[in-house]
């Protein structure tokens, strides 16, 4: 292939992915605020643009025009790098996500591995941000975030292995192909000889909430305890990047669940709504945004758990169950699949 075209193609991919990540992150903030507003019987943002739709742009302009204050006594390099580490891996992960059969920036054979490799960098950014801030609340928050992420990455990975066993591939496209068809073919239901699909799905969802530091597991930024947690000392775009990183991670987590459990780009009822087709990127996005909406709904409904009960949930329930789940699924796949 011609080198010039290749470079242009790569740049286009890059722009599209960064644009997708940034727009999603910005507009999820709007969705969250508007959604929270309606859940709480207020209006939410409504002044900037129709239905407050330009609010994210105004927020972005505000954050970017603010002075980046670096408090005295912070570990300056770490303090500067931490917000970037929150955002960059999130953008990188988008490279591997197949939004439809052909809409994927890089179709990697070990896509799942790449996602988890980059996702684990996220905890580093929280740790670095909290530690470098030299703020006691931020340090407590960083310690919480690390123990939380370590505890929940294990069951998350174990349950991913279950799905890999069922689908027989680490390639995200292959995993979706293995679920081709209407919704009873997808991994979230007992399918492909895996009777434990629903349990895996629910546990994976809980772990995903915890991994993205979302309520009710948002211990890292428990505002009534730790003010703002690891980003207490951040203002301006430093804070903005942490914020966008968080929302980008929500998008990634939801996309991952759609790929692993909800049949990716396949229509749930291909015969019932034929005009939308039996597969397409819109199905993928629809499922993804429904999941994101569920996450928003959960955040504005539940109070926060404590660190101890959170860790107990992982070490005493999720990890043993996910290991058992893995063994049982492996057996089922071996003897029935």
């Amino acid at each position: 292939m011609d080198l010039g075209i290749n470079v242009i193609e790569m740049l286009l991919y890059l722009v599209a992915i960064i644009g997708f990540a940034a727009i999603n992150a910005a507009y999820l903030v709007w969705v969250e605020r508007k959604g929270a507003g309606h859940i709480q019987r207020r209006t939410g943002p409504k002044e900037v643009g129709p239905y407050g739709l330009l609010q994210p742009l105004a927020d972005g302009a505000k954050l970017m025009s603010k002075q980046l204050i670096i408090p005295a006594g912070v570990d300056k390099p770490l303090f500067m790098v931490a917000p970037l580490l929150a955002m960059v891996p999130a953008v990188m992960i988008f490279v591997t996500i197949p939004f439809s059969e052909n809409l994927v920036a890089r179709d990697i054979n070990i896509g799942l591995l790449v996602i988890f490799a980059f996702a684990s960098v996220n905890v580093l950014s929280l740790l670095m941000g909290g530690w470098a801030s030299r703020n006691k609340y931020a340090v407590i928050s960083a310690a919480r975030a690390v123990s939380q992420n370590v505890a929940y990455e294990i069951p998350l990975l174990v349950m991913t292995i279950t799905i890999v066993l069922v689908s027989g591939s680490l390639n995200l496209r292959e995993i979706v192909f293995s679920q081709a068809g209407a919704f009873w073919h997808w991994n979230w239901l007992p399918t492909n000889g895996n009777f434990l699909g629903p349990i895996t799905f629910i546990m994976f969802f809980i772990c995903y909430l915890a991994e993205t530091n979302r309520a009710p597991f948002d211990l890292g930024e428990a505002e009534s305890e730790l003010i703002a947690g690891f980003h207490t000392e951040y203002g301006s775009m430093g804070f903005g990047l942490f914020f966008m990183g968080e929302y980008a991670n929500i998008v990634i987590g939801s996309a991952l669940i759609v790929i692993l459990f909800l049949g990716g780009w396949y229509s749930p009822f291909p015969e019932v709504v034929p005009f939308l087709g039996s597969a397409g990127v819109w199905w993928f996005l629809l499922k993804m945004y429904l999941l994101i909406w569920l996450v928003v709904l959960i955040r504005w409904t539940f109070p926060r758990v404590t660190l101890w009960s959170l860790l107990n949930l992982s070490w005493k329930i999720l990890i043993p169950f996910s290991l058992f789940n893995l063994l049982a699924s492996a057996g089922l796949v071996k003897f029935l699949g």
Binding site: Q40, R41, P216, A222, S224, R304
Partner: peptide, 16 residues
């Protein structure tokens, strides 16, 4: 109190 525990929504219901 529920806000202290991390639940934001009941505060606004109570305020209504």
């Amino acid at each position: 109190f529920v806000l202290d525990l991390g639940g934001f929504t009941p505060l606004l219901y109570a305020f209504t």
